[in-house]
Design a protein around this nucleic acid. Structure first.
Lengths: 340, 340
DNA sequence: TTGTAGGCGTTATCAA
DNA sequence: TTGATAACGCCTACAA
């Protein structure tokens, strides 16, 4: 037998049964609110429960019921994510609300090292969760492999390059959103519109550029696009500085993210441009950045909460054995502030 | 027996035993890497595992071992928290790193509704976790009650008013940090220093005011303190507006948080004051706010990651049955930028 | 080195 | 209505 690391033994159904003079079966029935418990038994049980301080061991219940009523929410690299991206918190909340309504527990699993990766993979396969929601998955991830191999009901927010084919994905339409805000920007009468593209190796980055190009059509000018590897402030600042030297006459700018836009605004200011008088600028994400820049940034709002809710809904669907769409796409909206 | 919601049955130790022609005991021993497994048995077992696709059910193992190797990380109202407070993410990371090093799984449990409160309380008492870390606990919280009643090894980040006496707390010294930054502000030669106090009903808020007062000593002027209920941008803006009307000659300002400071800066600007030339301002938290205001805000940095790491360390200590300090206090540092 | 069997705390079946 | 009893998947003393 095991030797528990010296902690107070907790009362069990067995104890309650002894103390109340009924059988474990009856106690169990009482606990699960079934009918067929006489009021005499009920009272005895209630007294016994108080007396011994019984609290049900859900883990044991799960073992026999073969379900844990909980789903994992896996988030990679939360260090940068939580700080830079307010969406992640909203996604969590959306997922939790949906799960909660169906009485499922959401357990957020942080992946911040290789150790974490392995441990979380074990956790997922260990019967603690019935399903998983994954945000910002990595390529060649043991976690995705586990999900795939175990056929664990899962939904990804975003679409990683090598995700399990059996999973579902909830995504936003980066391309049409980028096109929408570019069109809006052009409608303000700007003639020379540039873009600070970012993360072109990711779907999101590439799609935002594609949307920009699409919106401009014939007026698209390749020389007005400057790229930076990450969705970062400094990247935006540096790229904008280069762009400004190459094309000092730009009067409109689409940044691939709010952070990039904020960096670009610093460069614009340093170059003596007024915003939006000389150069109008728009971003993407509707992050806290967009509300704290001066002037406030016009940007694209992601339905973060809905993203999470939808992912949860998909997992729940699969859990019930119902058919779940393999991909669902949610619409973004343009929020217009003062920067353009 | 239960009827699992129609999912693929997973192979068990039993199946592996059958397929490999050895007993369950031997399979179990192999899995747990014990000695006393012949190489013949080993090979047969390995083959069988691959064949049937066995993956251990950790939940079942936990039941018999009486330990889950995981601790809950409970966060309330993450909606506002994740967005306003970058510290929370850092605290999570710090806790996770420490737990991970000891091979414990951290499960973040979000509390966002009454439903959540009850479910999480059940989860905590259900044997899924061996301990808990709580950030931003609420008063009269069923969760704290459960922790108290079950004597669940726990550590709080911050010290809620009615926390279980048996728990441990890791806190920062708001008072001396506030005193430190106020002293630094005074050292720049400011004569009339005001404060936008906030959340005076919380320890943190009251202590920051106390530190401010302490640092100023005789020069403390009660009429230069304006209070606002929450650590919010709008509260800071409105309070600063009032203060400015009452005392137009202030030349220094300590805001109880960065968000409050950012709001105050808006008010200052609206009143035509230059920062820091006319009025120098400092905040508290070193949140993203402080890096995005113009000019960048001088502020107090909380050792967020260490806060989380320390809380985890305390829980781990208790888990081992070792004595854990009832409270540990961590130092803050002043980070000086351009606003003062 | 291996097999047997009992138990972890529940729920569920079935006869009483 | 209730009480035995057999699972759930695993670990581990003890015997062989």
């Amino acid at each position: 037998m095991a030797s528990p690391p010296h902690r107070k033994r907790r009362a069990t159904v067995h104890d309650v049964a002894i103390h109340s003079g009924v059988s474990r079966g009856t106690v169990s029935r009482y606990i699960n609110g079934e009918r067929y418990v006489s009021s005499a038994a009920r009272e005895a049980i209630e007294a016994a429960i108080r007396e011994v301080g019984y609290v049900p061991n859900t883990a044991a219940r799960n073992l026999v019921m073969q379900r844990s009523q909980s789903v994992g929410f896996i988030v990679h690299e939360p260090g940068s994510l939580f700080i830079e991206d307010p969406n992640i918190g909203e996604i969590m909340l959306g997922a939790n609300a949906t799960l909660s309504a169906e009485d499922h527990q959401m357990a957020v699993l942080v992946v911040d090292s290789d150790r974490d990766t392995d441990r979380v993979a074990r956790y997922l396969s260990g019967g603690f969760v019935e399903g998983a929601i994954i945000v910002s998955a990595r390529s060649h991830d043991p976690i995705s492999e586990v999900i795939d191999r175990l056929e664990l009901p899962a939904a990804y927010v975003g679409r990683p390059p090598d995700a399990p084919a059996a999973a579902s994905f909830v995504v936003i339409d980066n391309r049409s959103a980028a096109a929408a805000i570019t069109t809006r920007l052009a409608a303000t009468g700007r003639r020379r519109i540039g873009m600070i593209a970012a993360a072109l190796d990711r779907d999101s980055g590439a799609d935002r550029l594609a949307g920009f190009r699409e919106a401009l059509g014939d007026r698209f000018d390749e020389t007005l696009v400057e790229a930076t590897p990450l969705y970062s402030y400094s990247g935006g600042r540096d790229a904008a500085t280069s762009l400004l030297q190459r094309a000092p006459d730009i009067d409109g700018l689409f940044a691939a993210s709010d952070a990039v836009a904020a960096g670009a605004m610093e460069a614009l200011r340093a170059a003596g441009r007024r915003i939006p008088e000389d150069v109008a600028i728009v971003g993407f994400d509707d992050s806290t950045w967009s509300r704290r820049t001066i002037p406030a940034l016009s940007t694209v709002h992601q339905p973060a909460r809905e993203l999470g809710a939808e992912a949860a809904r998909l997992v729940l669907l699969k859990l019930r054995g119902e058919a779940a769409p393999t991909q669902v796409q949610l619409d973004c909206s343009v929020v217009w502030r003062e920067s353009a």
